Simulated scan of single mutants.
Amino acid sequence: MSDTTMSEQKIRLDNLEQALDAVHAVARAVLVPRDLPVLYRTIYQVLATVIPYDAGYIEIFDQARDSMQTVFAIDEGSETFSTDNWNYHSSELISWMVAQRQSLLFGDLHADMRTRFPTAKPRPFGNEEKRSRAWLSVPLLLGEHMIGIFNIQSYQTGIYGPFEQTLLEALANPVAVALENARLLSELEHAVSGLKIPLIPLTDNILIVPLVGVLDQLRWERLTEAVLETISAQGCEEVLLDGSGIVSFDIHTVQALTTLVQA
């Protein structure tokens, strides 16, 4: 085996090791409870360690409205967050991906696109004065269920190939799981936020407050107000807080409990 061949194999192994590290890093990142903007930013920060890109975006598929939301876009470090829906049927590329559940790779978007999609026009975002060249999008799927689209772009031509596509598809799986979990958690929080927390008088002087579900800032404010009103109305001297039913017990929950006790 020549020195050149050994050197090439070492480079491939190093690239593979970096790729595996990136997949594991994204998988770890999406398991940690965090707000979505931080999650999006973390995904692209990890991605930058193994795949060069100048721009990219994450689309979320809204099945009920049959539309897309570009929830995160980055262009040369400038980030944009949005919850606006847009008609993806106006984009031939995105429509094809939704229908086929397959990735799209262009070595030079504006040159190669004419061959596969003669009438298509890229949807602009970020710095519209620059033309994207290398372009790679993979579907975010849970089974056959479309979650959204994961995209990276470069102003250079030909820098993405089968290796980058395979890596981005591997990263797409934990990203899809994280986004779906975030959606389900948001629905749960919305449903639970409408529930009243019962205040149970144990005796004339003791009040029991069972804390259940996800307690966001609004529910904590309502709870504090209700407890203080009940104490004032009934003359309770002791309040017992039962936190065994709290879904998420983090630093924010501790701070809210401290505020309630001090009130």
Rank of each mutant, 00 (worst) to 15 (best):
M1Y: 00
S2R: 03
M6I: 08
Q9S: 06
K10L: 13
K10S: 07
Q18K: 14
Q18F: 01
A19S: 15
D21N: 15
V26D: 06
A27T: 14
A27Q: 10
R28D: 15
L39D: 03
T42D: 14
I43M: 08
V46M: 01
V50R: 07
Y53F: 15
D54F: 01
I58P: 09
A64L: 08
R65V: 01
S67H: 03
A73D: 13
G77C: 08
G77N: 06
G77E: 05
T80P: 10
D84P: 00
N85E: 13
W86M: 05
S91N: 12
E92S: 13
S95Y: 03
V98Q: 12
G107I: 02
L109E: 08
H110Q: 12
A111R: 13
R114G: 11
R114F: 02
T115A: 15
F117A: 10
A120M: 09
K121H: 12
P122Q: 07
F125W: 14
E128S: 13
R131D: 12
V138F: 04
L142D: 08
E144Y: 02
N151R: 06
S154V: 03
Q156V: 01
I159Q: 09
P162G: 06
F163T: 11
E164H: 10
N173W: 05
E180M: 07
L185Y: 01
L185W: 00
L185A: 06
H190Y: 02
G194K: 06
I206Q: 10
L207Q: 09
I208F: 09
L215T: 01
L215F: 02
D216H: 04
R219S: 14
R219N: 09
R222S: 11
L223I: 02
T224M: 14
A233W: 00
V239T: 05
G243H: 01
G243P: 15
I251H: 11
T253S: 14
T253D: 05
A256W: 03
T258E: 14
T259M: 07
